[in-house]
């Protein structure tokens, strides 16, 4: 079978030498099974060693290779060439500063992730000798979906609020993760997370466009998590008004 040839149009930006980002086009002979990441690796190995991009697992789980492909945030390892035409445009994710070529600066996200206290806050420390917490499949299901986030940041790239608020909005993945711990039967940390979630930049900033859930490669549904969190946040607010402590 003859190989297909594509034109890969890649946004380049090397801060030490380029005043502005620009597109560079590479002609890439491809195997029919390839994903966009394979084409980028072909460029790196055979055409241009100066092109930089992040990648590792090639199986949708490490979250490294988020790029904007033909205008949509995608994982490079999950963007199959068979679904694209012969001209494919690859850009860094939106809403993050470009560090170099397709590599973006994600410091802001890492800080936001930390701000929601994404770990179990237990009522009291349980001794290891006492064994595991009992958690029924139904209790597991209550948060499992929100624990599937691979931090690929496609949702931040797609989120209009994150861009409009100049990155003030905590954003989909971090909020979904906060919700994941809030919903975990082993956790009592909701009040400790509440000041972040209920803050102006927290869940209320979300305008429920739902773009985050559309682009999520792991079906985490951050938009759904945020809607649920809005509800519990409102309940927390009301119960605090009448003097009944929340969780």
């Amino acid at each position: 079978m003859s190989k297909r040839t594509i034109q890969l149009e890649v946004l380049r930006y090397r801060p030490e030498q380029d005043k502005e980002p620009f597109f560079q086009t590479y002609t890439v002979p491809c195997e029919e099974e390839w994903v966009v990441l394979d084409a980028l690796n072909y460029v790196k190995d055979e055409i241009d060693r100066t092109l930089s991009f992040r990648w590792s697992c090639h199986m949708f789980v490490c979250g490294s290779c988020g790029y904007k492909i033909d205008g949509e945030p995608k994982l490079g390892c999950k963007a199959f060439l068979r679904d694209y035409g012969d001209n494919i445009r690859v850009e860094p994710l939106d809403n993050f500063p470009i560090e170099r070529d397709l590599v973006v600066v994600i410091d802001d996200f890492v800080e936001k992730l930390q701000s929601v206290k994404p770990y179990i806050i237990a009522k009291e420390e349980k001794a290891l000798a006492a064994g595991e917490y009992i958690q029924t499949p139904a209790q597991l299901k209550a948060f499992k979906q929100y624990s599937m986030c691979i931090n690929c940041l496609l949702c931040y790239s797609a989120c209009p609020q994150y861009g409009l608020t100049n990155q003030e909005f905590i954003g989909p993945a971090a909020l979904a993760l906060a919700h994941r711990y809030n919903m975990d039967s082993r956790d009592v940390g909701r009040s400790a997370r509440e000041h972040v979630l209920a803050a102006h930049e927290g869940v209320w900033e979300c305008s429920f466009v739902g773009a985050c859930s559309v682009v999520c490669p792991k079906d985490v549904d951050p938009a759904g998590a945020i809607q649920q969190a809005k509800f519990t946040s409102a309940v927390d607010y009301l119960t605090s008004m009448v003097g009944i402590g929340g969780k």
């Binding site: 237990a122 499949p137 597991l140 711990y181 975990d184 082993r186």
Partner: peptide, 12 residues
């Protein structure tokens, strides 16, 4: 205890 979502039996 740190929150790993281990799969569970019906008993929890």
């Amino acid at each position: 205890h740190w929150g790993c979502p281990w799969s569970r039996e019906g008993s929890g």
